[in-house]
Amino acid sequence: MSKAAVLVLGGRSDIGLAIAHRFAAAGHPILLAARRPERLADDAADLRLRHAVAVSLMDWDALDPVATEAMIAALDPLPGIAVCAVGLLGDQAQAEHDGAAAALVIRTNFEGPALAMGWLANRFEARGSGVLVGISSVAGERGRADNYVYGAAKAGFTAFLSGLRNRLARRGVQVVTVLPGFVQTRMVEGRALPPRLTATPQEVAAAVDRAVARGRDVVYVRPVWRVIMLVIRLIPERLFKRMRL
């Protein structure tokens, strides 16, 4: 039996590509949706050569809601699994003074991914099967001075996914929220990250694979992050507001 196709939105992201390789290695055909997808031609060739699966590229901009709806409506055949790895860390300091910069972070991490997952959810619901995987972030678990614009957008996305899951729980559609901590990718290039808390994109991919296979809802990458975030969430606001985390 042939395996279900996997659609990766934000297919050029380090995490998204790692996920594509992981599923391709298991024999799933791959669709990568990204801006200027011609930049992914070599990655597509690599996926085909290594894993002997079909790979196609789609031109897609998460900031264009009309095009997003049309792209998803046109998917034929409809993939079995869809992963959203779109994101933009942005510059918090800039976002505090530059409305356009802040809006870009909010739209890229929340509006774009949420709308795409919403359209996909409708089609999966109509079919009665499918898996949606949203890559959100631990940054959405509590707002911090360092990155609350990004964090708030991720919180929005996390809540959106939680709502979708609730809506689709009895409709044969699985919704996975992935909450990575630090991941060694282009997004955080050059930052000094604590090695024990920093995962590779391949670890994220393995976590996604496991979550899909086991029907999980919310997964952290590296178990220690579950503990860290539990503690961070428990700190009373009175204290938290004075802390530098």
Binding site: D42, D43, A45, D46, L49, R50, H51
Partner: peptide
């Protein structure tokens, strides 16, 4: 820069980026 780009099964010539690991070439 570790992508395999093209393989010609007629003459066994592979085009690949320099970061490709030999073990991955064998696996493929």
């Amino acid at each position: 820069l570790g992508r395999m780009l093209a393989f010609d099964a007629g003459n066994g010539v592979i085009e690949a980026e320099a970061g490709v690991m030999l073990g991955d070439l064998i696996a493929a």
